[in-house]
Amino acid sequence: MQRVNMIMAESPGLITICLLGYLLSAECTVFLDHENANKILNRPKRYNSGKLEEFVQGNLERECMEEKCSFEEAREVFENTERTTEFWKQYVDGDQCESNPCLNGGSCKDDINSYECWCPFGFEGKNCELDVTCNIKNGRCEQFCKNSADNKVVCSCTEGYRLAENQKSCEPAVPFPCGRVSVSQTSKLTRAETVFPDVDYVNSTEAETILDNITQSTQSFNDFTRVVGGEDAKPGQFPWQVVLNGKVDAFCGGSIVNEKWIVTAAHCVETGVKITVVAGEHNIEETEHTEQKRNVIRIIPHHNYNAAINKYNHDIALLELDEPLVLNSYVTPICIADKEYTNIFLKFGSGYVSGWGRVFHKGRSALVLQYLRVPLVDRATCLRSTKFTIYNNMFCAGFHEGGRDSCQGDSGGPHVTEVEGTSFLTGIISWGEECAMKGKYGIYTKVSRYVNWIKEKTKLT
């Protein structure tokens, strides 16, 4: 034993070699072989497995989906700052455009905790909710729209109204504003409101030439003092309507412009014939205590009207009353817009006519005020429907199939267009061939041609 100890002390290297040989010859039971080890760690190889990531292109799944990435790591994937920024906006807080917040056709661009709407022409605001041009839906104005110097929408209202708090709607500024039905039992019968379409306001006024200088022999019209197929109006439903009495009662109609003036057809009036105007009328054979009678003290036909040349060209006249009318729910003026808007309103496509005229061709006159909704007829169809001249200051309205029309005794009465609950004068009943005849239409004086003249002559002093 002493000898062994001496050998170990003198030859430590020998001992180490012996131990190493023993270990190498022993069977290893701690580690699995290569094949079995792979069965336990069965993990798919990654895209760049075996390579240094710093030297390969980034992978979106590896960089940002398996674990949260930084902007720089995302930049490695896209290799483009702009594309990385677009991805980053949604990656950080989701897609803010998912709810489609942009209105009126706006395009949404996502941002971090926010979004941006790219608005089409005519709109602005956070969600493109603000109209900035009158060309689109009248700028959301209830009545009139004008573009300011910086191309912003400025709404306005006709006389007797003021802008509401929203700067879009119009509200009454006087007790009985024009064009409004205020009798409670008839307010439910107000005709369907007309909503502004998209309009090209630059070209809204037709490029028409008034044929002022045409000389033409007097034409022989049949029954051209021209509501057939209409309905009984309720008291106060058309408070701007008046009836004219002269040699015979209810020979023509008219509309209240203001307390002192009536507008009617020029062919209705004769110099030297006494005319009485009755406002607030409903049943011409009954006294309903809503009527107001006034005498006409002055007749002003349009300066281009000449019955000797043509009885229905420039067929418009103004009547001055001896005493002002007292405005109330049964006696209310009709609204008159400017030339541009009167023309736009007419193009809405349908209007209402009213009167006490004959209820059928050569038949009896109506006792109760009649009204009828009539569609506008395109000019080409209008011209083809008659052998008589249709001037540019006239328009056609009615039904091709016949059966409904204005008729004798309705002449001078109103053709009105309702705009968001307020009625505007767009025409004056003038003439036609018979009444409600198939293929024939009622012919009306186009008020847009005469609004400046009306307003100039009827100013209240």
Rank of each mutant, 00 (worst) to 15 (best):
D405P: 13
R384Y: 06
R83M: 06
C335L: 00
F78V: 15
K260V: 04
I256T: 01
R180M: 06
A380W: 13
D110W: 08
L20Q: 02
N59C: 05
F123M: 04
S49Q: 15
N258D: 04
I299N: 04
F87T: 15
A149I: 12
Y441T: 07
C97F: 00
T417F: 02
Y161Q: 02
T342G: 04
I309Q: 13
Q219E: 09
F251S: 09
R373A: 11
K234M: 06
T445P: 00
T342F: 00
T287Q: 13
E76D: 10
I316Q: 00
E79S: 14
G230H: 11
L372P: 03
S329Q: 06
S217A: 09
H267Y: 02
E76K: 13
L383G: 13
H302I: 02
P235F: 07
E72R: 13
V326T: 09
G272E: 06
H302A: 03
T215N: 09
V447G: 01
E418D: 15
P44F: 05
G357W: 07
Y391H: 15
E61W: 06
T264L: 02
P375W: 06
L327A: 03
F55K: 14
P414A: 09
E124T: 04
G421L: 03
A173V: 12
L32Y: 13
G355Q: 12
C382S: 02
C382K: 02
F221D: 13
N306P: 02
N166V: 01
A380S: 08
G236A: 07
H415A: 02
G254D: 00
K126V: 07
V331H: 01
C145R: 02
R384L: 09
S365V: 11
T445H: 05
R191V: 15
V242E: 01
K347F: 04
E270Y: 06
N42Q: 12
E159D: 12
T458K: 02
G357D: 10
Y305C: 01
G442E: 04
T386C: 08
S354C: 09
F251Q: 08
Q241D: 03
L318G: 00
L369R: 14
R298H: 05
D232K: 14
K68T: 15
H289T: 13
Y47K: 04
C28W: 01
L327I: 13
I256L: 04
P172F: 05
R379E: 08
G355P: 05
T389V: 10
I309W: 08
L24H: 03
E434K: 14
S385M: 09
S49Y: 11
L52M: 15
Q2N: 11
S156C: 04
Q408L: 14
K387A: 10
V353E: 02
W356N: 03
R3I: 10
S187H: 06
E171R: 07
F121P: 04
P375I: 08
T287P: 08
S107F: 05
S107L: 06
N80A: 10
K51G: 13
T290V: 05
E79Q: 15
L367M: 05
P197R: 08
R449W: 09
V368W: 04
H415T: 00
N127C: 02
F360T: 14
T381E: 08
A207D: 08
P324Y: 03
G253S: 07
E208P: 11
D315P: 01
A317Q: 01
V416W: 15
N306K: 11
N5W: 08
T225D: 15
S217W: 09
I429G: 10
H302V: 02
C382W: 02
S411P: 09
G432N: 13
T276S: 09
N393G: 14
I297M: 08
A149W: 06
T389M: 07
T186F: 14
W356S: 03
T264H: 01
D232P: 15
P235W: 07
R180E: 02
Y201P: 08
K293I: 06
P375Q: 11
Q2R: 15
A207S: 11
Q57E: 10
G439V: 03
C69T: 04
S182F: 08
V174M: 07
F251C: 05
I7N: 14
V77H: 13
E54S: 10
T422F: 03
R43L: 08
V243G: 04
T133C: 03
L318F: 00
Y312F: 11
E10S: 14
I334F: 00
S114G: 15
A436M: 12
V353K: 04
M65P: 14
C178G: 01
C170I: 01
Q219L: 07
Y391A: 13
I344V: 10
A308W: 05
L163Y: 01
R43N: 15
F399P: 14
Y444K: 01
Q143L: 02
Q90S: 15
T445W: 02
P44K: 04
S365P: 11
I316T: 00
Q219I: 10
G179M: 00
V447M: 07
G254K: 00
A250N: 12
E10G: 15
I390K: 06
K89E: 05
E418I: 11
K152M: 11
Q370F: 02
Y47E: 06
C119R: 00
Q237I: 08
M394F: 09
G402W: 15
K274P: 13
V227Y: 10
R449L: 10
Q167R: 08
G229S: 14
L24A: 11
S49V: 12
W118L: 02
I334H: 01
G432P: 14
V195F: 07
W453Q: 00
H302F: 06
H415I: 03
V368Y: 07
D110C: 03
A173H: 10
G421R: 08
T194R: 10
D111Q: 07
N104E: 02
F196T: 08
S354F: 07
L19A: 06
E420F: 12
C28T: 09
E53C: 04
R46F: 07
R358M: 07
C69I: 03
D200M: 06
A366M: 08
E433F: 09
H303N: 08
